[in-house]
Design a binder for these strands. Structure first.
Lengths: 123, 123, 123, 123
DNA sequence: GTGGTCTAGACCACG
DNA sequence: GTGGTCTAGACCACT
C-alpha cells in the first residue's frame, strides 16, 4: 500500500504522509477508515516507529486523519472540504507556472497543449 | 541589482543564484556579460565571500555562467538553450499539476481558466 | 441517554463521565438516582466494561456519584455544592481569559459583547 | 526567559512553544528577533535538543517564527495578523464559557463581575 | 556554528 | 494492543 523510495529527496515521514493524503483525497481511503497502527506499519516498511508517528502527526495537522488514543488513527470525515482547498491551491500553482512560462517565451497555444497533454513519460 | 531577504527561508547562496539565473533567462543580462567579482559582491551585500562563491559555483553547474580563471565570471553563450530547457521543464510541471487537478475533480474548463488567468492576488 | 462519538479525540471513559456529570449538574439526574450498572451500560454501548468502570471511578473521584458496594452507583446528594464549585471554576476561567484578551488588545466593550453574545456559529 | 514547570501536565515542547508565542504576541519579542539556538536553549533548560526542536517546529507551524537553515530561528513579521486571530479565538472561548456558566445558573451581573475583575489570586 | 531528519529505546495513558 | 512524549546520539545541509 505504501512504498518508500530512498532516492526521493523528501524525508521519509513526508513521503508516507503525502501518500496517505493522496489515497484519502482520491477516495481510495474513505472517511473513518482505520490506518495501520504505527508499530505495524513501521515493521512492514522496516523503518522506525517514530518516523511513522511523525507522518501520522503531520496528517492530523493537515486535517487528513484524526487520532484517538489507544484506538488508532482514522481518515477524517471532513476530507471532502480538504479536497476543495487542495484543488484551489493546485489552481494557483498552475496560474503561477503559466506566468513563468510566458516570461520564458511560451505561447498560449503551448500552454493549451501542456494543460491537455496526457502525462507521457518522454517529451 | 541583487537583493537578499533574510526572512526568506531559502539559503542565501540559492537566493543569489536564482536571481542571477532569472536575470539571464529574461534577457536582462546578455551572454558574455561579466558578473561582479566574488569579493566585491560579498562586500556590497555584507555577506560571506564563501556564500557568493557557492552561488557562482551553483550557476556554473546549472550552465548559466562560465568561469574564466583570473578574469572573472561571465553569462554563458548557450543561455538560450538553457531557456529552452527551463521552458520544457515548466511545461512538464504544468502537465503534472493538470493531472493532479483532474484527479481532484477539476474540469477542462477550470484548467483553461487557470492557465489564462492573470496572477490576481485573490481567488 | 449516553452517546459515544468514536471520532471524538477524548478517551471514551471521559466522554461517558463528562456526559453524566453534565446531566447531573443541569438537574436532569436528581440526587440518589441510580446509574445503569457497569455491565448493562457496557453492553448497550458495545464497549469494554473496564472503560465504564473507569468512567464511574472518575465520577466518584469528582464527587458526582457515590458507589454503594453490591447495590450500584447513585448521583451524589451534594451535587448542588458541586454545581457551585464548577460555577466558581468557570468564573475563574472567564476572568483569566479576559485578562489574556486585554493583553492582546481587547477593549472593555469587546469583552461585554462577547460575554452577552449568543453562541452564533459564525463570527 | 523561559521557565519549565515539570508539574505542568502539558508536554515540555508545548510549554516552551506557548511561552515564546505569548512573548511574541505581547510584543516583548519583536519581528525578526532571533531566538536562542536549539542547542543553547536545550543546555540552559537542561532538556534534550530534540524537545526544543519540536517546540520551534510547532512555532513555525503556527506562524509565530520562521526558520532559516544554518542561520537560526526568528520571530515572524506577520505576528500582528496572528494577534488578531488569537484575539478572535479568545473571544469565542469566552462566549462559550459564558454559555456554560449560564447553564450552571450564573446571572448576567455575575458574568459582568468576572469579566471586569482583576486576576485576584483568591476567590 | 546553525537547523532538519532519522534511529533506538524508554515511559506513560488508554482500551 | 493502541498513540503520545521524551531522551540519547547520529548524520546531513547550510553559513
Amino acid at each position: 500500500m505504501i512504498q518508500i523510495d530512498f532516492r526521493d529527496p523528501r524525508p521519509i515521514y513526508e513521503q508516507v504522509a503525502d501518500k496517505f493524503e493522496e489515497l484519502a483525497l482520491h477516495g481510495v481511503l474513505q472517511p473513518d477508515t482505520q490506518l495501520p497502527s504505527v508499530r505495524q506499519l513501521a515493521m512492514e516498511l522496516s523503518i522506525n516507529p517514530n518516523t511513522i508517528q511523525r507522518a501520522y502527526s503531520e496528517l492530523e495537522r493537515r486535517g487528513v486523519i484524526y487520532a484517538a488514543k489507544g484506538r488508532g488513527n482514522f481518515i477524517s470525515d471532513s476530507i471532502d472540504n480538504l479536497r476543495g482547498r487542495r484543488l484551489e491551491e493546485t489552481g494557483r500553482q498552475i496560474t503561477a507556472l503559466a506566468e513563468t512560462a510566458r516570461a520564458l517565451g511560451a505561447t498560449e497555444a503551448q500552454l493549451e497543449d501542456w494543460i491537455h497533454r496526457k502525462g507521457d513519460s518522454d517529451t
